[in-house]
Amino acid sequence: MPAELNHTIVPARDPLASARFLAGILGLDVDPPVAHFTPVTLANQVSLDYDRLDDFEPHHYAFTLSEQEFDAALARIEHGGITHYGDPSCQQDGQIYRSKHRTGRRGTYFRDPDGHLMEILTPGGTGS
Rank of each mutant, 00 (worst) to 15 (best):
M1Y: 06
M1T: 12
M1H: 08
M1V: 09
P2A: 13
E4S: 15
L5N: 11
L5H: 04
N6E: 13
T8E: 08
T8M: 14
P11D: 13
R13F: 08
P15K: 10
S18M: 08
R20K: 15
R20T: 12
R20N: 14
A23G: 03
I25K: 00
L26I: 04
L26R: 00
G27L: 11
L28G: 00
D29L: 08
A35L: 09
A35M: 10
A35W: 06
H36D: 13
F37Q: 14
F37D: 09
V40L: 09
T41P: 06
L42N: 01
L42W: 05
L42D: 06
A43S: 11
V46E: 14
S47H: 08
L48S: 06
D49E: 14
Y50T: 15
D51G: 09
R52M: 09
D54G: 15
D55N: 09
E57Q: 15
E57D: 10
P58E: 05
Y61V: 13
F63S: 09
S66Y: 07
Q68I: 12
E69M: 07
F70I: 03
F70A: 01
D71S: 11
A72V: 13
R76C: 10
R76Q: 10
I77V: 14
E78A: 15
E78L: 13
E78Q: 15
H79R: 15
G80M: 09
G80I: 06
G80V: 07
G81H: 07
G81M: 11
I82K: 13
Y85V: 00
Y85C: 00
G86A: 01
D87F: 02
P88F: 02
P88T: 03
P88M: 14
C90K: 13
Q91C: 06
Q92L: 12
D93V: 13
G94T: 04
G94L: 00
I96D: 02
Y97G: 14
K100I: 11
K100E: 14
K100R: 12
H101I: 10
H101P: 04
H101E: 15
R102E: 10
R102I: 04
R102D: 04
G104K: 04
G104A: 03
R106Q: 04
G107A: 03
G107H: 11
Y109K: 00
R111F: 01
D112F: 03
D112N: 00
G115M: 01
G115K: 07
G115W: 02
H116G: 05
L117V: 07
L117Y: 09
L117N: 12
E119W: 07
E119P: 10
I120M: 12
I120F: 07
L121D: 06
L121E: 10
T122N: 01
P123M: 01
G124S: 02
G125V: 01
T126K: 12
T126G: 05
S128C: 10
